[in-house]
Computed example of a mutant assay.
Amino acid sequence: MENEEHQLGKPFKITNRSREIKKGVVAESLEDLTSKVRSKLNIEENENVTVVLEVDGTEIDDEEYFSTLDSNTSLMILTQSENWVPPSPPCRLNIDQVDDTKGGTELVGLVDRLKSNLCHLSLLGGAELELLSDMDPESLVDITFPDRIFLENLKEASGRYLVEKRQAQDAMDLLRLYQEKENDGGN
């Protein structure tokens, strides 16, 4: 089996810096890998390519180290001046936690919850978004949150989400009216 592996190469999982693209590649050598990666990820021949371990950013720059890698090792392909970045934590949403914010939880509790997981912002209702977009970051900085920039950005993002939610609701209402008009006209 190992002889077959050396003849055919080893399978590797490859990804780009943003981890949005994930592909599989079978390669016999580092040179073979970079050649196949250029094709799979549409990287120009004149563009520099760096291969690193996806898990910790260790650069793989010689055939000797490449040959020690296990099959199915996850590799990240970096181009030009890109640097390895650790994976960002997944956006885990706990619906029960978000539901808890509805029903009058104070602004401080809402901000605290969002500071621990910003993903909840997209699930908030209009009342919570309005509360956040109307908040005074200065008053919260004094109470519990020393990060004024976070509070200012949260206020701005909340305002944008609120506007988008209202626009989406208006569009849905208009569509509903149009559909009702169509249904009434067909009867």
Score class of each variant (00 low, 15 high):
Glu2Lys: 10
Asn3Gly: 07
Glu4Tyr: 12
Gln7Asp: 01
Gln7Met: 14
Leu8Arg: 15
Lys13Cys: 05
Lys13His: 08
Lys13Val: 14
Thr15Gln: 07
Ser18Val: 01
Arg19Thr: 02
Ile21Phe: 02
Lys22Arg: 15
Lys23Cys: 08
Lys23Trp: 00
Lys23Ala: 12
Gly24Tyr: 10
Gly24Met: 11
Val25Phe: 00
Val26Arg: 15
Ser29Ile: 03
Ser29Lys: 09
Ser29Leu: 02
Glu31Tyr: 03
Leu33Asp: 08
Thr34Asp: 00
Thr34Asn: 10
Ser39Tyr: 10
Lys40Ser: 13
Lys40Pro: 06
Leu41Thr: 07
Leu41Val: 13
Asn42Lys: 05
Ile43Glu: 05
Ile43Val: 09
Glu44Gln: 11
Glu44Tyr: 01
Glu44Met: 02
Glu44Ala: 05
Glu45Asn: 07
Asn46Asp: 09
Asn46Ser: 10
Glu54Pro: 00
Val55Gln: 09
Gly57Val: 06
Thr58Arg: 14
Ile60Gly: 01
Ile60Val: 11
Ile60Glu: 00
Glu64Cys: 02
Thr68Lys: 05
Thr68Arg: 04
Ser71Tyr: 00
Asn72Leu: 15
Thr73Val: 03
Thr73Asn: 04
Ser74Arg: 14
Met76Ile: 01
Gln80Arg: 14
Gln80Tyr: 01
Gln80Ile: 02
Ser81Phe: 11
Glu82His: 02
Asn83Cys: 10
Asn83Leu: 14
Asn83Trp: 07
Pro86Thr: 04
Pro86Met: 12
Ser88Phe: 06
Ser88Ala: 13
Ser88Gly: 08
Cys91Ala: 15
Cys91Glu: 13
Cys91Pro: 02
Cys91Trp: 02
Arg92Gln: 14
Ile95Arg: 06
Ile95Ala: 08
Ile95Leu: 13
Ile95Cys: 04
Val98Trp: 02
Asp99Gly: 07
Asp99Asn: 15
Asp99Ser: 09
Asp100His: 09
Asp100Asn: 12
Asp100Thr: 12
Gly104Ala: 06
Gly104Asp: 12
Leu107Ala: 11
Leu107Val: 12
Leu110His: 05
Val111Trp: 01
Asp112Phe: 13
Asp112Ile: 05
Leu114Asp: 06
Leu114Gly: 08
Lys115Asn: 12
Lys115Leu: 12
Cys119Met: 07
His120Pro: 01
Leu121Ala: 06
Ser122Leu: 10
Leu123Met: 13
Leu124Val: 12
Gly126Ala: 15
Gly126Gln: 15
Glu128His: 09
Asp134Lys: 13
Glu138Asp: 12
Glu138Cys: 09
Leu140Ser: 10
Leu140Tyr: 04
Asp142Ala: 13
Ile143Val: 14
Thr144Gln: 10
Phe145Ala: 04
Asp147Ala: 08
Arg148Met: 13
Arg148Thr: 07
Phe150Asp: 03
Leu151Met: 04
Glu152Tyr: 03
Asn153Ser: 06
Leu154Asn: 11
Lys155Asp: 12
Glu156Cys: 07
Glu156Ser: 13
Ala157Tyr: 07
Ala157Cys: 06
Gly159Met: 04
Arg160Ser: 12
Arg160Asn: 14
Arg160Glu: 15
Arg160Gln: 14
Val163Glu: 15
Val163Pro: 09
Val163Leu: 08
Lys165Asn: 10
Lys165Arg: 15
Lys165Gly: 08
Gln167Asn: 11
Gln167Asp: 02
Ala168Lys: 12
Ala168Gly: 01
Asp173Ile: 08
Leu175Lys: 03
Arg176Glu: 15
Leu177Met: 11
Tyr178Asn: 10
Gln179Arg: 11
Glu180Gly: 00
Asn183Leu: 06
Asp184Trp: 10
Asp184Phe: 09
Gly185Trp: 05
Gly185Val: 00
